[in-house]
Amino acid sequence: MRNTGRVSTPPLPVESLPLFPLHAVLLPGAAMSLRVFEPRYLDLVRECGRNGHGFGICLIIDGEEVGAVASAAAYGTEAVVEDFATGDDGLLVLHVRGGRRFHVHRVRVRDNGLQVADVSWCADDVVEPLQPEHGLLATLLHEVIDKVGGEHAKADESRFDDAAWVGWRLAEMLPLENPQRQVLLQTQDPHERLQQVLALLP
């Protein structure tokens, strides 16, 4: 076999993941509550409970959350179920947290309307210190958390020098549009993500 001099990249492993498309972007480390009532998503919850895995949340690009199958973004976030309850209206409420990010390669639709995707997982975040030009963003995040409180109010001070964590928390807590959050979700480099956040500030 002739050596072409090219280094081949092994294909990324692909896994099957059921999808829950929403008019919202779930970010890594962020919490979200979901009301579940459609049969296809009740089936999804039962399947995830049996298999002990999460499901994927992707931003809807075209369509609605209920009814006909919607078209969703090609990048999303794994939703890990932390708790569940029954709401005042009798519907199931899931409390989930964003886990790994994924890239959708192919989607198939089951007879019940549930979308199941072949996905590859994006690289995990690594802890890298903030660059000097992004120090203002850590200060801004402090101010936002001091104002709104919530679960991040007790975060260790070291987290505010973690470029990935600061970026995800600002993307979660700033009043951004969903397409803006989606762009941040799809950005792999944490420093580039912070630079994009900086550009979005008034």
Rank of each mutant, 00 (worst) to 15 (best):
L34C: 11
R35H: 11
R35F: 09
R35K: 12
R35Q: 11
V36W: 11
F37C: 04
F37D: 04
P39W: 07
Y41P: 12
Y41W: 14
L42I: 10
L42E: 12
L42N: 07
D43M: 06
V45G: 07
V45T: 09
R46N: 09
C48E: 03
G49Y: 07
G49H: 11
R50T: 06
G52L: 04
G52K: 05
H53D: 11
G54Q: 00
F55L: 02
F55R: 00
F55G: 01
G56Q: 01
G56V: 02
I60V: 10
I61W: 02
D62N: 13
E64G: 02
E65R: 02
G67D: 06
V69H: 02
V69G: 07
S71P: 03
A73H: 15
A74G: 12
Y75V: 14
T77W: 01
A79S: 02
V80C: 07
V81Q: 13
V81A: 12
E82F: 05
D83L: 08
T86M: 05
G87H: 08
G87A: 15
G87C: 04
D88I: 11
D89M: 05
G90Y: 01
G90M: 02
G90D: 01
G90T: 03
L91D: 03
L92Y: 04
L92K: 03
V93Q: 11
L94Q: 05
L94I: 05
V96N: 07
R97M: 13
G98W: 02
R100F: 03
R101S: 01
R101T: 00
F102I: 00
V104I: 14
V104D: 04
R108I: 09
R108T: 14
R108L: 12
V109A: 07
N112E: 12
G113D: 09
Q115F: 13
V116Y: 05
V116W: 10
A117T: 00
A117F: 01
W121C: 08
C122M: 15
C122H: 08
C122K: 03
C122A: 12
A123P: 01
D125R: 04
D125A: 15
V126Q: 15
V126F: 09
V127L: 11
E128D: 12
E128Q: 13
L130V: 06
L130Y: 03
L130E: 01
Q131K: 11
Q131D: 08
P132R: 05
P132Q: 04
